[in-house]
Design a protein around this nucleic acid. Structure first.
Lengths: 200, 200
DNA sequence: TCAAAACGTTAACTAAAGATAAGAAATGAA
DNA sequence: TTCATTTCTTATCTTTAGTTAACGTTTTGA
């Protein structure tokens, strides 16, 4: 895949957050980097500041923690989605999560430094504030739903919801990752699936 | 408390998100409303669009759901914090949560309409984009931590974390609200507290 | 002020999840 | 292919949480 093709995908993916005119786009793209991560390579690790945001052109990423030596999956990101240890990126404090490529993954990234520069650049400042606002709002909405599901639903109900709305996760992720994502262990998810098989 | 005093508190509380100059402040304040909610009155209810954001000048609010007739607390907000059913406010779709005053509460609010107008107003647009960005980023960080605590910690560990960092919640909220906030039932929290008493 | 409601704890019981281990099936790499 | 790893299921056992109900205390508000 060529750089220009990746850029087109990115521009399209950005549309719901911000639309640049040609002059803005030229400057904006000067702040972008292209990176490829081989499967299992890390985009972010705990204890380090995650100083960039990525847009996934192709591939997928997994957010996870290691607790008492155990690998616990928190979230996934796929093509046309953004990826970052946001709090770390925003506060420039060390993050608490691993972010790992689940397959060979191509990303377009910009750093916090780039963002600061664009926010200082009169030509881009307004659009970048807008971009920052809409993307943060978007993920805020995702978190609001996800948090509510943990407060109001049982693990089984969360799994049933995922069956309805989580096509991509169900199809592309191994079950033990999905289990953690639902807040339970793989063994537990296996039992839930069994219960559902038997009773329905 | 007078309106001007409330405004000063608001302006101070806003500082970490956006700083207005005098001209901007005058226009901004024209879009604000002052409301008082008696204890137990609602700021937002499910099925309805929550078309405003509030800043709590005094008092406190509780976010909760009703599931199978059961009242389940999700979150709290106190003085100097913002309150809204954000996803509903942002998407103008019906919300899924009740937001209720826990005591007589004074708020400064602006509506989604007001925000749209200010975003269209050349004098304020930039600052409002910035405000929207920083506030969404702030709450995104809160959610990231809260979500991680549900994925990586047991209820007991979440309670212990709250003991360290949740002074205000522990002091001002009844225990059965705190239990839900931690993702468990009141009975369960009572047992956890007992275990901790005995073993330490 | 006084009855009702709300709150926190405890008990008894049930249901579900965690931990661990074992084994089968699928996947992947040399 | 073959061998190792990963993945998923199942079983056993332990721990924890959910449910319901009872009880005493505190708070509330009519």
């Amino acid at each position: 895949m060529e750089t220009s093709e990746a850029l087109n995908i990115f521009r399209k993916g950005l549309e719901k957050f911000v639309v640049f005119n040609e002059a803005e786009w030229i400057v904006f793209t000067q702040h972008l980097s292209f990176i490829s991560l081989k499967k299992k390579k890390y985009f972010a690790v705990p204890e380090q500041v995650c100083e960039k945001v990525g847009f996934i052109v192709s591939g997928s990423m997994r957010y996870f923690h290691i607790i008492d030596g155990q690998d616990i999956t928190n979230y996934f990101s796929f093509e046309n989605e953004f990826v970052s240890s946001y709090k770390s990126y925003l506060t420039l404090q060390p993050g608490i999560t691993y972010i790992q490529a689940l397959e060979d993954t191509r990303l377009i990234t910009f750093t916090r430094d780039d963002m600061e520069q664009m926010l200082q650049n009169p030509l881009l400042a307004f659009k970048m504030e807008h971009f920052g606002r809409t993307i943060a709002e978007y993920y805020l909405c995702c978190y609001e739903d996800r948090m509510a599901s943990f407060i109001t639903q049982t693990p089984e109900e969360r799994y049933l919801s995922l069956l309805e709305t989580g096509r991509e996760i169900l199809q592309r992720m191994p079950q033990h990752y999905i289990a953690n994502f639902l807040g339970i262990t793989p063994v537990s998810l296996s039992r839930i699936r069994r219960r559902l098989m038997v009773h329905r």
